[in-house]
Amino acid sequence: MQQVKGVISRAKGAPVELVNINVPDAGPGEAVVRIQACGVCHTDYHYVQGGIGDDYPYLLGHEAAGIVEQVGEGVTNVAVGDYVVLNWRAVCGDCRACKRGEPWYCFATKNAEQMMTLEDGTELSPALGIGAFIEKTLVAAGQCTKVDEGAEPAAAGLLGCGIMAGVGAAINTGGVRRGESVAVIGCGGAGTAAIAGAALAGASTIIAVDIDDRKLEQAREFGATHTVNSKQEDVVETIRELTGGNGADVVIEAVGRPETYEQAFYARDLAGRVVLVGVPTPDMEITLPLLEIFGRGGSLKSSWYGDCLPERDFPMLTDLYLQGRFPLDKFVSETIGINDIDEAFEKMGRGEVLRSVVLLEDAKEAK
């Protein structure tokens, strides 16, 4: 057992707290990882605001890179000293999806069996089964993906969630091919990553859509060839105009709202693909003409974690980053200390950053 500093959300809407946390030694199938850097993701803020559940207190953070310090009995995929990116899809290998050769849809992903706790023994719920705003965390060994140690932790850790979700929405779910046209509605972290993914796949026309000109200008840095401010232009008509009157081959909806999904539906070409990667709230509903769904053909897909397989996709994207072919470091807007997370949430809400990244090597004293 070790005691380290970590950031928790104790109650809905309350400021986050830096506290002492007990981390058990690695048990069978588990690993203890010393966290070097962890991105501040919208999902963490959803935990704070009660938008995911009420299993407080939550140990926040999940987009992380670090060094394996301990492994438990039976662990073979990583060893002490390995540089890893954490993931929340540790596939089981035995469920229906895994057995049919589609482990990226695994229905029984693994987390650590033991629980991290507060000093008084209160069990913590780790965000997405990880909990990485902490000096050291306990995870299932399958949640550790070894990558090239040349990748900076602040950049590499971002593969653990939002960047992978966006890139995977384009490449894995959307199946973007060379020469195709792609429109991305919503240019936050996942949407911008989808733009970068479309560029990586060789799309010839990449249309970025947002209400914020700052985000649209930023989208060009990641590969957008055209931008559309949806406050000023009709999204569907403009996308059609930019694609020869046809609509885009792939439209990625990265907002998660009925009105933007409807735009995506009508902005695609016949037999085109719509990919939903934006996360809706439980109360949202949408109505579409069934004849239009039938008549347009193609596919309407949802992308969960970019339909990624971490052991395949994380090393591949890390290698492309180190080769200068994937601009992973551009997603890092700023690096911050472990006491600055509330302020990072505020910046994120104002659209001022793609990602703030917490550096954990020198976690400060608890308040």
Rank of each mutant, 00 (worst) to 15 (best):
G6P: 09
V7M: 04
K12Y: 00
V16N: 13
N20G: 14
P24G: 01
E30C: 08
H42R: 13
T43K: 10
V48Q: 12
Y56Q: 03
L59Y: 08
L60I: 06
L60H: 09
H62G: 10
I67T: 14
G74R: 08
V85G: 10
W88R: 00
G93A: 05
D94W: 12
E102V: 05
W104L: 00
A112D: 02
T117L: 01
L118I: 06
E119D: 15
A141C: 11
A154Q: 13
A154V: 09
A155K: 07
L158H: 12
C161R: 07
M164A: 14
A170H: 01
T173C: 13
G174H: 11
G174K: 10
G174W: 10
R178S: 09
T192P: 06
A193M: 06
A198T: 01
I206M: 07
I206R: 04
I206A: 06
D212T: 01
D213G: 06
A219N: 07
R220A: 12
G223V: 05
T227C: 12
E233N: 11
I239F: 10
E241I: 04
N246K: 14
D249I: 00
V251R: 07
E253H: 01
Y261F: 15
L270F: 12
L276C: 11
M284I: 00
L291P: 00
G297V: 05
D307I: 00
P310L: 07
R312W: 09
F314I: 00
F326S: 01
E343R: 13
G351W: 11
E352Y: 13
L359I: 15
A363Q: 02
